[in-house]
């Protein structure tokens, strides 16, 4: 739940930074929510494999009959349930704080629902690559944030499109496409990275 606190806190910083003017906040709300969600998702990544790595249970998992790819996928799902889902649930509230217009909330929820799983999947690759590295957190952010950019662009784009009455369907479809690319590829890459860190 710390992730949610971080998320809310980050969003709170923006009115303090740019001023409380409702029209400005409404204009930047989609971007602020998404950027904060990106950061929150990233911040919770470095513990994803670290604990299991340190206490040796990752070795156990690698030796288990279950394919490591499946373990990786399960880990991503766990990360999404503990991070993406809470962020998704709390995001309408932040929308209200930022004066986001009423017609955007449905799209906001949908975009978060389709977009955040990709964050968990792509982020897990970074987490797996940096698992054995002391103070890998900064490195992790360098590896993962550039890869988050497409999700950010289309996540915000969907909400913006809904706001101007165009409907965010096209953007949501691209987000779904990104998820469909990440879904089979990421667990595979995660498993590969974990394997070589366990050698």
């Amino acid at each position: 739940m710390l992730v949610v606190v971080f998320f809310v806190l980050t969003v709170t910083l923006f009115p303090l930074g740019v001023g409380p003017e409702a029209s400005v906040l409404r204009r930047i709300a989609p971007g602020v929510i998404w950027v904060s969600a990106l950061l929150a998702a990233m911040l919770s990544l470095d513990r994803l494999f670290q604990v299991d790595f340190e206490d040796g249970s990752l070795d156990q998992l690698a030796l288990a009959p279950l394919p490591l790819e499946l373990v990786a996928a399960a880990k991503c799902l766990a990360h999404w349930l503990s991070t993406g889902l809470p962020l998704l649930v709390i995001s309408p509230l932040l929308g209200i704080l930022l004066n986001l217009s009423g017609e955007a909330y449905g799209t906001l929820l949908l975009a978060m629902a389709i977009g955040t799983p990709s964050l968990s999947l792509v982020g897990a690759i970074g987490a797996a690559l940096t698992v054995g590295i002391r103070r890998g957190g900064v490195l992790l952010s360098l590896l993962v944030l550039p890869l988050y950019i497409p999700v950010l662009i289309f996540g915000v784009g969907a909400i913006d499109a809904a706001l101007v009455g165009l409907g965010g369907n096209a953007h949501l479809l691209v987000l779904a496409a990104i998820l469909l690319i990440a879904l089979p590829l990421a667990p595979w890459a995660v498993a590969g990275a974990l394997r070589l860190n366990l050698e």
Binding site: P146, L147, I149, I153, F154, I178
Partner: peptide, 10 residues
Amino acid sequence: PIIKFSVDWW
């Protein structure tokens, strides 16, 4: 390519 595509769109 995904980044390129999304940045172009953006």
